[in-house]
Computed example of a mutant assay.
Amino acid sequence: MTSAVRLAALAVRRLGGALATLLVGSFVLFAAAEVLPGDAAAAALGGSATPADVARMHAELGLDRPVLVRYGDWIGAAFSGDLGHSLVDRRPVAEIISGPLADTLLLAGVCALLTVVLALAVGIAAGLRPGGLLDRLLSGGAVTLVSVPQFVTAGILTLVFSSWLGVLPAVSLVPFGEPLLAHPEALVLPVAALTLFSASWASRMVRAAVVDAAAAPHVEAARLAGLSPARVVLRHLLPTAAGPCAQVFGWLAGTLVGGTAVVEKVFNYPGLSRELVAAVQHHDAAVLEGIGLLMAAAVVGGLLLADLLAMAVDPRMRTAT
């Protein structure tokens, strides 16, 4: 079996596992939304609604059907691209979350790009000389930033750059109808708060991969053969560390989409977290399930991407799988 065929077979197997995981996760999500306190029908009708009105609304929304039947209809429609309609204002869920989803993806995408660049630079610089002064400084700073909760980091950034220096807005307010990219200053603090945490965490993983790769027998043999340090690093050490690093960045790409909630809330960023909070407040299970399914798909997709990237750049992982 050729390497390409083996990689394709492994990719198909991984894809099947990812779909199964997403299916199980979707059922857990649907069940959790069902047991949330409150009633979307009662919330939509208002406090003056009678039990008969609520029962009639349940029938109109299909909430009186068995849970498994409703789950089957929902997941079948979701996999075909239809996330259903809001139980409160009857608008399509896809229409409600399309704008906030684009803003969240923009935030996560910019953060992911900066994270890859910073994590590689810091992780490689620290890992090439483990235990040295530069390693201790960079690793100490990374551990400190990872240990600080994101809302604290966001608060410090707001205090310094908004309250003290007055150079950036404290909240990500954009005039109605204008795109977020027309006001890039609204992105700076949210991106900085996310990137400081994610790049610090990823740099620790990159450092560990570089240190492990430096101890590999073929890297040591290249060093003993008298090759220049630059050639040892570029031709032998970094390719060995590429697989673990690819896994780290693939996983990070998925989790960033669902990991922006705290920062979005602190800066009042117009992303998915705002719609998620509103859905919980109004007991709108359809919107909650739609957002939850998208976030679960992002995480599962990120993990799948991490595996595929690692297998693509490191042949050892294909033979070990």
Score class of each variant (00 low, 15 high):
Ala213Ile: 08
Ala242Ser: 14
Ser139Tyr: 00
Val148Thr: 14
Ala279His: 01
Gln247Cys: 10
Ala33Ser: 13
His218Tyr: 11
Ala142Gln: 09
Arg235Leu: 12
Leu29Phe: 02
Pro51Tyr: 05
Ala154Gly: 14
Ala193Met: 10
Glu95Lys: 06
Val54Thr: 13
Pro179Arg: 13
Arg14Ser: 09
Phe197Ala: 13
Val28Thr: 07
Ala59Trp: 04
Ser139Thr: 15
Ser147Glu: 02
Val143Arg: 02
Leu137Arg: 02
Ala253Glu: 01
Pro100Gly: 09
Ala112Glu: 12
Ala285Ser: 12
Thr21Cys: 02
Trp74Tyr: 14
Val266Phe: 14
Val171Gln: 14
Ile124Phe: 13
Met295Arg: 04
Val277Ile: 15
Ala310Pro: 00
Gly271Pro: 08
Pro51Asp: 10
Val206Ile: 13
Val211Gly: 07
Ala43Lys: 05
Ser163Asp: 12
Arg129His: 13
Ala108Trp: 10
Leu189Asp: 01
Ala44Thr: 06
Ala94Cys: 00
Leu159Arg: 10
Ser203Arg: 06
Ala261Tyr: 15
Ile156His: 04
Gly301Met: 02
Tyr269Met: 05
Arg316Pro: 04
Ser163Phe: 14
Gly177Arg: 06
Pro229His: 07
Pro179Gly: 09
Trp251Ser: 12
Ala202Ser: 15
Ala9Gly: 12
Ala170Glu: 04
Gly290Arg: 01
Val35Asn: 08
Ile96Ala: 03
Asp284Ser: 01
Lys265Pro: 01
Ala209Asp: 06
Ala285Met: 04
Pro190Tyr: 14
Arg70Gly: 02
Trp74Phe: 11
Leu7Pro: 00
Val287Gly: 04
Leu87Pro: 03
Gly259Ser: 07
Leu168Pro: 05
Ala193Trp: 03
Leu29Asp: 08
Val116Asn: 05
Val287Glu: 00
Leu234Trp: 14
Arg90Asn: 09
Thr50Trp: 01
Gly76Thr: 13
Ala9Tyr: 06
Ala20Arg: 01
Gln150Lys: 11
Glu34Arg: 13
Leu137Glu: 10
Ser172Arg: 08
Leu113Thr: 14
Arg204Trp: 06
Ala285Phe: 11
Gly254Val: 12
